[in-house]
Design a protein around this nucleic acid. Structure first.
Length: 861
RNA sequence: GCCUGGGUGGCGGAAUUGGUAGACGCGUCGGACUCAAAAUCCGAUGUUGGCGACAACGUGCGGGUUCGAGUCCCGCCCCAGGUACCA
C-alpha cells in the first residue's frame, strides 16, 4: 500500500480504539475537567444524515484537543429513543417499538463509530431502558412531592390522527409538528407541570449563560414577562368585580369598554336576558373553534353582554363585551379596552362604534390610529402632563391606596402539559386509589411498560396502556387497597431533560447521579445541538435542573454553561429555469403563476448577470439556490456514501471546512474532493510517491524557516480550535502542507508536530502517520504542540505605504527599526513610487501605526 | 407587524481592537507528464481600460464620521430563522 487508502486506515484505527478503550473517561479527579456534550439523537429508521456529523465532529475536535491539552474529558453519547415514529410503525406492522428502537440504535451506533468519534462507549444511555427511566420516574416523583405536578381537566391540543394530546409547542399553525395532522381543542384529564413557578428564575439566570443571544432572546420572549397592574372594575348591579391585567395602567382614563374572554367565568352571570341568546351562541362557537380557526379570522368579533362596569378612577359606566380576541389563558382573561392607545382595541372600537378617548398626546404629525409611543398624558385628570413612566407609577400608587388594584407581573409562559396518550413513553409512577391519585413509593420503581396486544388507543379513547388490563389493575403497596395505574405516559422531552446527568455515573443505583462525580463534572462546559431546540428542550431541561438543584441533587443552577448551534446543511446548489405553455420565462415572472414547469439546469448552462443568474447568452433569469435536503426533492446526501468514496476523515474535514459551524451552508461534493486531495497531499508529504512505501522524513534539525512555518500553523490552529473556528484552522493546516511540499524532506520533529495538529480533525490518518513515524501508542493523549513565539519573528517587517489612504508601495523595514517612526516614514518618502505622488504637493499629516501601516496625507500646492 | 441573524469574486468562505479586501478550498483557463485519459504537478484567475509597467472602480442601496470604513453612525432594500390578537 503506497497511496492513502482511507477505508483500510480507518477500519484499523477504529478497531484499535475499541479494543484499547482509548477514550474511556478517566476516573481520577486530579486534572481539570472538560464536559463536552452533543444533543443525543433520536435513532430514526433512516439512519444518520449529514447534519448529525456536523455538530458531532465539532465536539469531537474539541474533545480530542482538550485531552491532548491535559484535561479529563467526558464526551458521551446516547439515545433519545422514546418517540412517535417507532410507535406508529408498531401500529402499522405490529412490530414492538422496542425491537424497532433496538435495531435503529445499532445502526446509529455503527454509523457513529464509522466516523471515528471519540465517545466513551461504556457510558451510552438509552431513555427507553428501564434502568434509565427508573430515574426519570424518580425525578417526576420529586416534582410531584414538591407540588409541581398536578392533574387538571384542560382543553388540550388533541390530534385525532395521532391519537394523542400535543403540547402547545408541538402544534404548528394548528397542525401537529409530527406528520402535519389537524389538531382540535378538547377538554381532558392531564398531568401538568408547574414550570410557571420557575418563570422568574428561568428568565434571570439566562443572563450569565454563554449562549447565542438569539437563543436567550427566544427564551425570554417565550417566558414573556410583562410588568403592569391588576385593576378591579366593579360590575354595575352585581357584587362581582372584573379583574384585569394591563401593562398600561396610565391609560385607564381612556378605558371606554371592557372585554371578557368567551371562557371567562362571569360571562354567564352578567349577561342580560336580551343579550343571552346572542352571547350563548357566540361562546359556543368560540369553544368549538380550534386555535387555528380563531387565528384565521382576521376580523374582530364580539357581542355586548348588556352589563356595565364602573371605571374606578372616574366612576364612568362602560359596557362589558365578550370577544375572542381576548385570550382566556393570559392575564385574567379580561381586559380594560383603551382603543386610543391599543391597536387591537382601536380596531374593535371602530367596528362596533365604541368611544375613543386619547390619553396620551400624539406628536403633531401623527396621522395613525392607536398611538402607542411616548407623550404626555391628556384627558387624565391628576395624571395630565406626565410622561408614561411617571404616570404609571402615580396611578399604580393611587390604585393601591384606594384598594382597587396593585402592581402585577405576568408571564406568557404556561404550565407544561406533561402527559401523552401513547404507548412508547415512560409510565407515570402514579396509581389511583378511591378516585384519588397517589405516588408510588420509590421502592416500586421502575414502573415498566406492560405488553399490549395493540398499540392504538382504545375505542373509548383511553391511552394504549389501558389495554393491559392486568397491569392497570393493581394494589396500593401501602394500604393493600385496590388501585388502578395511570395509563398516560410522559412526553419525549422527559428523558432528554436530564440525560446529561446520567452520563456522569451511568451505573449508579442510588439516585440519578452520584454526588461526588456530579460535583466534579458539572456543569456541561460545551453543549452543541440544533437551533430547533432553542426553546423546548433547553427550557424544559433548565426547569428540571433547577428543581433538582432545589432538591440538592445537583450543585449548579444551570446545566449548560456554553451552548452552540450548528447550522443546517442544505443540498447542493440548484439552478432552475421556468417554463410556461412551452415557453421559457424569467424566474421573476414565474412567481405566483400556476402551471409553471421547473426545469433543472446544470451550472454550465447559466452565467451571472448583474446580481442574478441568467441562461447563458440570454436575458432569461433563472433561480439559483440551495434547498433543504428532503427525500421528496431527492437531494439528500447520505454520509455512508461519502465515507465509502472519500473516507470518514474527508467527511469530517469537509463538514468543518465548509464555513462557520453556526451557519447554514450548501453541500458541495466538489468540496469534499478538495479536502480529500489535501489529505492525500498530507500523506505524500510523509510517504513520498514511489511504489514502495518510503518515509520522506529526515532526522535533522529543522531550519528557522521551517520552524516559522510550523509555529505559524500551531498558533493559528490552536487559537482557532479554542474559538471553534474550524474552517480557518483547516485552512492553516493546508497552508502548512503547501509550504512543506516545497521542502526536500520534512524534519521528523516538524512532521510529528503537524500530525498532532491534524489529529483532532482527521484522527484516522493522523494515527496512521503517527505510527509510521515510529510511535507504538495512540496519539490521543500525546502532548499538544506548544507555540514558541520566538520562531514567529522575522528579520524584516513589511509596511504598506499609503498616500491619501491609497496603497502606493510596499517597503521592508529591518525588524529592529520597525517601531522607529522617523526611520520608517523617512524610508517611505524616499520610494520612487511614493515620490511620484508627493511631487507638487505638501505633506499635511503623517500617520504611522507601528507594525501596521504608513499613510501620508498630502494637499496639492 | 415584532424579535434575532445575515448580505464580500462564477461558488463556499477569509480579513481577531477601524489599517494592504478576496486567505484557504472549489470552479474556470493555460501549461507539464501521458500514445491517450485519469491522477498529479506548475502558472493565471474581482471588474473595466491599456501591448505594457499601470490606472480607475469594487464588500446589498443612499448618506455621514475618519488620514483611512467590509468593519463605526443614520436612513432604506433584500434573504434566512423565530414569533404572532400575550392587553
Amino acid at each position: 500500500m503506497s497511496s492513502y487508502d482511507p477505508s483500510a486506515v480507518e477500519t484499523r484505527w477504529q478497531q484499535y480504539w475499541k479494543e484499547n478503550k482509548t477514550f474511556k473517561t478517566p476516573e481520577d479527579h486530579d486534572k481539570p475537567k472538560y464536559y463536552i456534550l452533543d444533543m443525543f439523537p433520536y435513532p430514526s429508521g433512516s439512519g444518520l444524515h449529514v447534519g448529525h456529523p456536523e455538530g458531532y465532529t465539532a465536539t469531537d475536535i474539541l474533545a480530542r484537543y482538550k485531552r491532548m491539552k491535559g484535561f479529563n474529558v467526558l464526551h458521551p453519547i446516547g439515545w433519545d429513543a422514546f418517540g412517535l415514529p417507532a410507535e406508529q410503525y408498531a401500529i402499522k406492522t405490529g412490530t414492538h417499538p422496542r425491537e424497532t428502537t433496538e435495531k435503529n440504535i445499532n445502526r446509529f451506533r455503527e454509523q457513529l463509530q464509522m466516523l471515528g468519534f471519540s465517545y466513551d462507549w461504556d457510558r451510552e444511555v438509552n431513555t427507553t431502558d428501564p434502568d434509565y427511566y427508573k430515574w426519570t420516574q424518580w425525578i417526576f416523583l420529586q416534582l410531584y412531592n414538591k407540588g409541581l405536578a398536578y392533574e387538571d381537566e384542560v382543553p388540550v391540543n388533541w390530534c385525532p390522527e395521532l391519537g394523542t394530546v400535543l403540547a402547545n409547542e408541538e402544534v404548528i399553525d394548528g397542525k401537529s409538528e409530527v406528520g402535519g395532522f389537524p389538531v382540535i381543542r378538547k377538554p381532558m384529564r392531564q398531568w401538568v407541570l408547574k414550570i410557571t413557578e420557575y418563570a422568574e428564575r428561568l428568565l434571570d439566570d439566562l443572563d450569565d449563560l454563554e449562549w447565542p443571544d438569539s437563543t436567550k432572546e427566544m427564551q425570554r420572549n417565550w417566558i414573556g414577562k410583562s410588568i403592569g397592574a391588576e385593576i378591579d372594575f366593579q360590575i354595575k348591579e352585581y357584587d362581582d368585580k372584573i379583574r384585569v391585567f394591563t401593562t398600561r395602567p396610565d391609560t385607564i382614563f381612556g378605558a371606554t369598554y371592557m372585554v371578557l374572554a368567551p371562557e371567562h367565568h362571569l360571562v354567564n352571570k352578567i349577561t342580560t336576558d336580551e343579550q343571552r341568546k346572542e352571547i350563548d351562541q357566540y361562546v359556543e362557537e368560540a369553544a368549538n373553534k380550534s386555535d387555528l380557526e380563531r387565528q384565521e379570522v382576521k376580523n374582530k368579533t364580539g357581542v355586548f353582554t348588556g352589563a356595565y362596569a364602573i371605571n374606578p378612577v372616574n366612576g364612568k359606566e362602560i359596557p362589558i363585551w365578550v370577544a375572542d380576541y381576548v385570550l382566556a389563558h393570559y392575564g385574567t382573561g379580561a381586559i380594560m379596552a383603551v382603543p386610543a392607545q391599543d391597536e387591537r382595541d382601536w380596531e374593535f372600537a371602530e367596528k362596533f362604534d365604541l368611544p375613543i378617548i386619547r390619553t396620551v398626546q400624539p406628536p403633531e404629525d401623527f396621522d395613525g390610529t392607536a398611538y402607542t409611543g411616548e407623550g404626555p398624558a391628556i384627558n387624565s385628570d391628576f395624571l395630565n402632563g406626565m410622561e408614561i413612566a411617571e404616570a404609571k407609577e402615580k396611578i399604580t400608587a393611587w390604585l393601591e391606596e384606594n384598594g382597587v388594584g396593585k402592581k402585577s407581573v405576568n408571564f406568557k409562559l404556561r404550565d407544561w402539559l406533561f402527559s401523552r396518550q401513547r404507548y412508547w413513553g415512560e409510565p407515570f409512577p402514579i396509581i389511583h386509589v378511591d378516585g384519588k391519585h397517589k405516588p408510588l413509593p420509590e421502592s416500586e420503581l421502575p414502573v415498566t411498560l406492560p405488553e399490549v396486544d395493540d398499540f392504538q388507543p382504545t375505542k373509548s379513547g383511553e391511552p394504549p396502556l389501558a389495554r393491559a388490563k392486568d397491569w392497570v389493575k393493581t394494589t396500593d403497596p401501602e394500604t393493600g387497597k385496590e388501585a388502578i395505574r395511570e395509563t398516560n405516559t410522559m412526553p419525549q422531552w422527559a428523558g432528554s431533560c436530564w440525560y446529561y446527568l446520567r452520563y456522569i455515573s451511568p451505573e449508579f443505583d442510588g439516585g440519578p447521579v452520584e454526588e461526588n462525580e456530579e460535583k466534579y463534572w458539572m456543569p456541561v462546559d460545551l453543549y452543541v445541538g440544533g437551533a430547533e431546540h432553542s426553546v423546548l428542550h433547553l427550557l424544559y431541561a433548565r426547569f428540571w435542573h433547577k428543581v433538582l438543584y432545589d432538591c440538592g441533587v445537583v450543585s449548579t443552577k444551570e446545566p449548560f454553561k456554553k451552548l452552540v448551534h450548528q447550522g443546517m446543511i442544505l443540498g447542493e446548489m440548484e439552478y432552475t429555469a421556468f417554463e410556461k405553455d412551452g415557453k421559457t420565462i424569467s424566474a421573476d415572472d414565474a412567481e405566483g403563476l400556476d402551471e409553471v414547469l421547473r426545469i433543472p439546469l446544470s451550472e454550465s448552462d447559466v452565467e451571472k448577470r448583474g446580481d442574478r443568474f441568467v441562461m447563458k447568452g440570454t436575458e432569461i433569469t433563472v433561480e439559483a439556490r440551495a434547498h433543504k435536503m428532503s427525500k421528496s426533492r431527492g437531494n439528500v446526501i447520505n454520509p455512508d456514501d461519502v465515507v465509502d468514496q472519500y473516507g470518514a476523515d474527508s467527511l469530517r474535514l469537509y463538514e468543518m471546512f465548509m464555513g462557520p459551524l453556526e451557519q447554514v451552508k450548501p453541500w458541495s461534493t466538489k468540496g469534499v474532493e478538495g479536502v480529500n486531495r489535501f489529505l492525500n497531499r498530507s500523506w505524500r508529504l510523509f510517504l513520498g510517491e514511489g511504489e514502495v512505501e518510503q518515509l520522506n522524513i529526515t532526522d535533522v534539525e529543522p531550519t528557522l524557516d521551517q520552524l516559522k512555518t510550523l509555529h505559524e500553523a500551531i498558533k493559528k490552529v490552536t487559537e482557532d480550535i479554542e474559538a471553534m473556528r474550524f474552517n480557518t484552522a483547516i485552512s492553516a493546516l493546508m497552508i502548512f502542507v503547501n509550504e512543506a511540499n516545497q521542502w526536500d524532506s520534512v524534519p521528523k520533529s516538524i512532521a510529528e508536530a503537524y500530525v498532532l495538529l491534524l489529529s483532532p480533525f482527521a484522527p484516522h490518518i493522523a494515527e496512521e502517520l503517527w505510527s509510521k513515524l515510529g510511535h507504538k501508542e495512540s496519539l490521543a493523549y500525546a502532548e499538544w504542540p506548544e507555540l514558541n513565539e520566538e520562531y514567529l519573528k522575522s528579520d524584516t517587517i513589511d509596511y504598506p505605504v499609503q498616500v491619501n489612504g491609497k496603497v502606493r508601495e510596499q517597503i521592508q523595514v529591518p525588524a529592529d527599526k520597525a517601531k522607529d517612526k522617523e526611520f520608517v516614514i523617512g524610508l517611505a518618502k524616499q520610494q520612487e513610487k511614493v515620490q511620484k505622488y508627493l511631487d507638487g504637493s505638501t505633506i499635511v499629516k503623517e500617520i504611522f501605526v507601528p507594525g501596521r501601516i504608513v499613510n501620508l496625507v498630502v494637499k496639492p500646492n
